[in-house]
Design a protein around this nucleic acid. Structure first.
Length: 570
RNA sequence: CGGGGUGUAGCGUAGCCCGGUUAGCGCGUCUGGUUUGGGACCAGAAGGUCGAGAGUUCAAAUCCCUCCACCCCGACCA
């Protein structure tokens, strides 16, 4: 491709709306342009990269037996009403003129087609996938293409006749995903994740560590433990019991509204100040007990109670259910008997605890959970913190980091097949709901994340897998020197016939412009053909990733290019 | 949806607080010439409803009000 005939509008300065490195570089290098908040056009160079990513995805999906579909982005609203997802907040964008919506994902449509055309266990398992434009009603698009209102997703769905079959399909996808991200040259890790409102029994997210990530992950570099903070656990020991088990006693705490005030005013151990948090979970009141300095992990609660909706109780609800306002609430003497009490595992059977007395301005001390609180349940409720020991018990420390999610795999189960009546006849001639899995990859995110991981102050540094072109020829002094022209044309032709993708900067601009543009665009190899080198039958080859420059005889160019390319990773 | 910020030529910005010439500068673009190994130089030129509307005023980019767009933090992220 000759650059004079291509369209790569590079910018020396990025618009100030771009903040993170990948966004800035994608705009500066002419890969994308913004059309509105969270809406991007891919320009020719950027779309070339997208196509390369999609090719890798297709190859790996085909490898595990996936079959490619192309389903409509435009969906009848009705089908989304059947699964109750039409009115999920911040989810679906709709069309004004008709009762149609823009699909944010395709579980419903897959189930629709499975219902119509899958009849027997003999037709299963199936892996159906597509690469499609998705639309979501993002309240706040951000970080360039990392979170947009319109984006490209590879979504796959497994259809199985047994739960064992689902396990196999799920594992196939996990392997395919590892292959895809590795081939794209990404440094990633997989974490156990919450299934959330998606439903289902198990899920894994594929993550890249990044300061700009929206997810929080817990990692142990020694043991390899990795989990989303939503589900992460640690081997922190319970606080246990103290020997001096005194009788329950109420005491006045008029100025202690918070745990910190309580600890300071009465010289207490913060770990034995049991914090009480009241939530309304699917319209029912719950009291959660935690160590004083711990945070409630709402995701764990949602999973524990298989809840669709949970929120902190309002001030009015606090008084209604407990008899006190926030700051004086505890497990003993609750006004309402409807309240379910669940304590964090770290407080299991603990004694010597201090907690609110459900009367404003009073607390209890010497609380013994096993003696004083009836029907108390225990569960893992807390958000873990950095530095805690990893859960398998080696004593290695956990760390917490931000991460970007590039893929997510779910064991969905039968939620959507039941809702939409997607059934098959089993070996005994009996109707069974199809057991589904759902597997997504954000295509733009792969592109942006690669740039996040592979750039320097000059620009992007492509590996061989995703580089829009493998070799960039820079003709320096094309107008002046016949020999430069001859060398460039010759190399351009040779590379093309060797099947190596080549971009030839034949533009009539100054050398500095070309050299800086080449570093910005970041093709793995730059062949600089200049007048002085050409005069002595030489050309220069620069490796973008290392900055190494090799001045070699023109006659050796092709051979050197080939051998240098073999040293550059994906 | 809450908090904060920005909006002046394709991009980056000055001017706004304290109203008053023809709205200035850098980059980019166009023409001519000179250049040609790290974003060249000279000369000339084009390009602006100062986000929109309404208001105050003799006079508004500047002050007031309303709205819109975009960005950041938070909520949200199935």
């Amino acid at each position: 491709m000759k650059q004079s005939q291509y369209f790569i509008p590079t910018l020396k300065e990025a618009p100030n709306e771009a903040v993170i490195p990948s966004h800035i570089l994608m705009i500066r290098s002419g890969l994308v342009r913004s059309l509105g908040s969270g809406i991007y056009s891919f320009l020719p160079l950027g779309y070339r990269i997208m196509k390369k990513i999609m090719t890798i995805i297709r190859e790996e999906m085909d490898e595990i037996g996936g079959v490619e579909f192309h389903m409509p982005a435009l969906n009848p609203s009705e089908i989304w009403e059947q699964t109750g997802r039409r009115n999920v907040p911040n989810f679906i964008l709709s069309v004004k003129e008709r009762d149609l919506v823009l699909a944010p994902t395709h579980e419903e449509i897959i189930a629709f087609h499975a219902r119509a055309d899958v009849k027997s266990y003999k037709e299963l398992p199936q892996i159906w996938y597509q690469i499609q434009t998705k639309f979501r009603n993002e309240p706040r698009p951000r970080s360039g293409v990392l979170r947009g209102r319109q984006f490209t997703m590879k979504d796959a769905y497994s259809l199985d006749s047994s739960w064992e079959g689902l396990d196999v399909s799920y594992e196939k996808h996990a392997q395919a995903y590892r292959n895809i991200f590795s081939r794209c040259g990404l440094k990633f890790f997989a974490v156990g994740a919450a299934s959330g409102a998606m439903g289902g029994t198990a899920s894994q997210e594929f993550m890249l560590e990044s300061y700009h990530g929206e997810d929080t992950c817990v990692l142990c570099d020694e043991t390899g433990y990795a989990a989303n903070l939503e589900v992460a656990t640690s081997a922190l020991p319970p606080i246990g019991r103290i020997d001096n088990n005194l009788p329950l006693e109420q005491f006045a705490t008029p100025n202690s509204k918070t745990i910190n005030e309580l600890v300071n005013d009465f010289q207490l151990d913060v770990n034995r100040c049991a914090k009480s948090v009241v939530y309304i979970v699917d319209s029912k009141p719950y009291l959660f007990m935690l160590r004083g300095n711990d945070e409630l992990n709402e995701s764990k609660v949602q999973t524990l109670l298989t809840a669709a909706d949970l929120r902190p109780a309002t001030e009015e609800e606090l008084v209604k259910y407990t008899g006190a306002n926030g700051g004086s609430i505890g497990p003993i003497g609750l006004k309402s008997t409807e309240v379910t009490i669940i304590a964090d595992n770290l407080l299991r059977d603990a004694n010597g605890l201090v907690s609110g007395a459900n009367t404003n301005g009073y607390h209890y001390k010497n609380i013994d959970f096993s003696r004083d609180v009836a029907n108390l349940q225990y569960a893992d409720l807390r958000v873990i913190e950095a530095g805690e020991p990893e859960p398998s018990g080696t004593g290695a420390k956990l760390r917490i980091t931000n991460a970007i999610e590039i893929g997510h795999i779910f064991k969905l189960g039968t939620k959507y097949s039941i809702a939409l009546g997607a059934k098959f006849l089993d070996m005994n001639g009996k109707d069974q709901p199809i057991i589904m899995g759902s597997y997504g990859i954000g295509v733009e995110r792969i592109l942006a994340c690669f740039i996040e991981q592979h750039h320097d102050d000059k620009g992007i540094i492509w590996g061989t897998a995703l580089a829009p072109f493998t070799v960039h020829i820079l003709g320096i002094g094309l107008k002046k020197s016949e020999k430069v022209r001859e060398y460039c044309d010759s190399l351009y032709a040779q590379l093309q016939s060797a099947g190596i993708e080549v971009l030839f900067d034949d533009r009539d601009i100054s050398p500095g412009f070309k050299l800086n543009d080449a570093d910005l665009l970041g093709m793995p190899l730059q062949i600089v053909v200049g007048e002085k080198n050409a005069a002595i039958d030489q050309v220069e080859i620069k490796v973008r990733s290392t900055g190494d420059k090799h001045v070699i005889p023109f006659s050796d160019a092709m051979q050197t290019i080939t051998s240098l390319l073999s040293t550059i990773g994906s």
